[in-house]
Each structure stands twice: as structure tokens, then as C-alpha cells.
């Protein structure tokens, strides 16, 4: 690659992992609150619990990766990043750092509140779960949106400089959140038969994910369409993910294949097609919603791979493209 990249694998992973954690918490809290916000048998307590326990892990991991890529850390100045917290200004990174710190705190409290496996309605954790869920939803959305704003704030990078990116990252984060809950749920089901409760929650998760992916496809379409219908910098930059030949000739990398195959086909089209198939067949035959375990594992993995590849394509494409002319 003939272009110097300042933000590489750690930042790509961070954007994905922060979105994943934010999504897991937001989805968990929404499911929990929408089913009454208690641990009663009819609530989505088990799914909410998976989300709650997962959420802090990727966010903390991602934050470590982010610190790892700091120039100061790489030359052995381990704790210089603390300077981030000595000021607060209008830089998206400054606001984001504070947001992330608060979010990590909230996600840890939330995970603590869901720690006991047994559903005990009316215990002292009940109130905590509900309160933190209410705070967690807007915070999760804020973190997911901020990952897009971070990149979108710079006119110097025409590929990134659009509000669409924040929406796309938000939808992708929520979809990854659903996917990771689906995945853990499928893995821990471990051969147990589908009960009425798990069918209900499986249906909800699948339906939500299909809807989120549908919106993602719409946003991707708008992103591409507006870029392609304009002239100048943005059109030039976005052509990198559309056409292989131009991507190689102008920028020395082939981002088009990565984008079309990994992001669009693997990450969006295949999962949404499978999900819609099971949703429809369940409806048509008037039977209980059920998905083979292998599919329940494959679909979320595809969604997560697509989510990661989305960050990969966006971060790389944004850096190797710039304004045209000088």
C-alpha cells in the first residue's frame, strides 16, 4: 500500500468493539424494559442478561486498543492519555472519551445488576437493573453515534465527512448488539429444545435484526447514491469502494471487492435473507418460530464479520482518499 495509514487495526477494532458493546447494552436494556423491566418469567430476562454481561467486555477491550495506538503510548509514555481527562473541549474525541468512560462505568454496574443467574423479582437488584437500563439506552446510542461523528467531523476526509456515517454506525452497532446476544444465546442453548419462551425471544431478536439490517441497507444506498450523484471530492473519494479499477488506479488498494463482498453480501444481504426466510416460514405455517441451531450461530457471525468489515472499509477508504486538486 503506497499510502501511510495513521489509524490501523487498533482503531478499526475499537470502532467495531465500542459499537458492539454499546449495541449489546442498548438492545439488552430495551428488551428488558419493553417486557416490563422485571425478572418475571414472561420477561426477556435471560436475553437481557446475556447482553448485560457481554457489554463491558468489548468496550473495555476496544478502549485498551485505542490507548495502544496512541503515539505517546507507543514510545513508552504509558499514561500520557490521562491528559485527555484534564480538559474537555468541543473535539469529538474529547467528548467521546468522557462519554466512553461514563459508559464503561454504567455497563459495569449494569452487568453487576444482572450477575445472579436466578430471576428474583423484587430483590434489591431489581430497581438497580431498571434504573441503569433507562440510563444505559441513551448512553449506548450516544457512544454508537459518537464513533461515527469522530470520523465524520473532518472536511479534510470527504469519504467520512457526512452525517450518514453516524447513522450507519449506529444501526450497525445495534445490529451487532442483537447478533452477539443471538450468538451467545444459541451457544448456551446447547441442544435444549425450543420452548415457547425462547421461541418468542428468538423471534423478537431475529425480527429486530432483520429490520436493523434493512435500515442499514437503506443508509448504505443513500450514502452511495448521494456520493455518486454529486461532483468533486465526495464522488471521487467514494468511487474507491464502488469500482475496483478506479480503486487500484487512483489509490493503490482494492477496497471495492472488500466492500461489496464482505460488507454488503456477507454482512447484510445473506443474514437478512436467512432471517426473513425463517420469519416468513414461521408465519406462513402458523407454527412456533424455530431456527436450526447451526443457522442461529452462522447468522450472527456473518453480521459481526460484516460489522467489522464495515469499520475496516470505512477507516481505510477514508484515510487513503482526500480532496482532489490542490
Amino acid at each position: 500500500m503506497s499510502t501511510e495509514l495513521h489509524w490501523g487495526f487498533p482503531v478499526i477494532s475499537y470502532l467495531f468493539l465500542a459499537g458492539l458493546g454499546a449495541g449489546a447494552l442498548t438492545v439488552s436494556a430495551s428488551m428488558f424494559l419493553s417486557s416490563g423491566g422485571t425478572a418475571s418469567a414472561k420477561s426477556y430476562f435471560p436475553e437481557a442478561r446475556y447482553g448485560a454481561l457481554i457489554a463491558p467486555v468489548p468496550v473495555i477491550l476496544g478502549t485498551f486498543l485505542l490507548i495502544f495506538e496512541l503515539g505517546s503510548f507507543q514510545v513508552g509514555d504509558w499514561f500520557k492519555w490521562i491528559k485527555l481527562f484534564q480538559v474537555i473541549n468541543l473535539s469529538p474525541m474529547s467528548i467521546g472519551s468522557w462519554l466512553l468512560t461514563i459508559f464503561i462505568g454504567i455497563s459495569l454496574v449494569y452487568a453487576y445488576a444482572f450477575w445472579p443467574r436466578s430471576r428474583m423479582t423484587g430483590d434489591q437488584l431489581d430497581k438497580l437493573r431498571k434504573t441503569v437500563a433507562w440510563i444505559g439506552i441513551p448512553m449506548g446510542i450516544a457512544v454508537a453515534v459518537y464513533t461515527g461523528v469522530l470520523l465524520g467531523a473532518m472536511p479534510s476526509r470527504p469519504f467520512w465527512n457526512t452525517p450518514m456515517l453516524a447513522i450507519l454506525f449506529l444501526l450497525s452497532a445495534m445490529s451487532s448488539g442483537v447478533a452477539v446476544i443471538m450468538l451467545v444465546r444459541a451457544l448456551s442453548r446447547n441442544g435444549r429444545a425450543e420452548s415457547e419462551d425462547t421461541a418468542r425471544s428468538g423471534y423478537l431478536l431475529t425480527k429486530s435484526d432483520a429490520m436493523l439490517i434493512g435500515f442499514e441497507l437503506l443508509v448504505v444506498f443513500l450514502f452511495i447514491m448521494f456520493a455518486h450523484l454529486t461532483v468533486g471530492d465526495v464522488r471521487h473519494a467514494v468511487s474507491i469502494i464502488l469500482f475496483s479499477d478506479r480503486s487500484i488506479e487512483l489509490f493503490g488498494v482494492n477496497m471495492a471487492v472488500t466492500f461489496w463482498f464482505w460488507v454488503i453480501v456477507v454482512g447484510l444481504l445473506i443474514p437478512v435473507t436467512i432471517e426473513l426466510f425463517y420469519i416468513r416460514s414461521g408465519r406462513r405455517h402458523q407454527k412456533q418460530f424455530s431456527v436450526p441451531r447451526s443457522v442461529e450461530i452462522f447468522v450472527p457471525i456473518a453480521v459481526l464479520v460484516g460489522g467489522f468489515m464495515l469499520r475496516y472499509v470505512v477507516v481505510i477508504a477514508g484515510q487513503v482518499t482526500g480532496s482532489i486538486g490542490i
Binding site: H6, W7, L70, G71, F73, Q74, V75, W81, R157, G322
Partner: peptide, 21 residues
Amino acid sequence: VCIGCGYCIQACPYDMRFLNP
């Protein structure tokens, strides 16, 4: 004060900044 986050390097429309290794 600089922590080397690289944000300014991305933001300069002239690519004038670099991270001193």
C-alpha cells in the same frame, strides 16, 4: 500535552502533519 492520538493528522486538509516516531 500532545498524546499522539493522530486526530489532527487526519483533520488537516493539507496532510501537513505526521506522528514523530
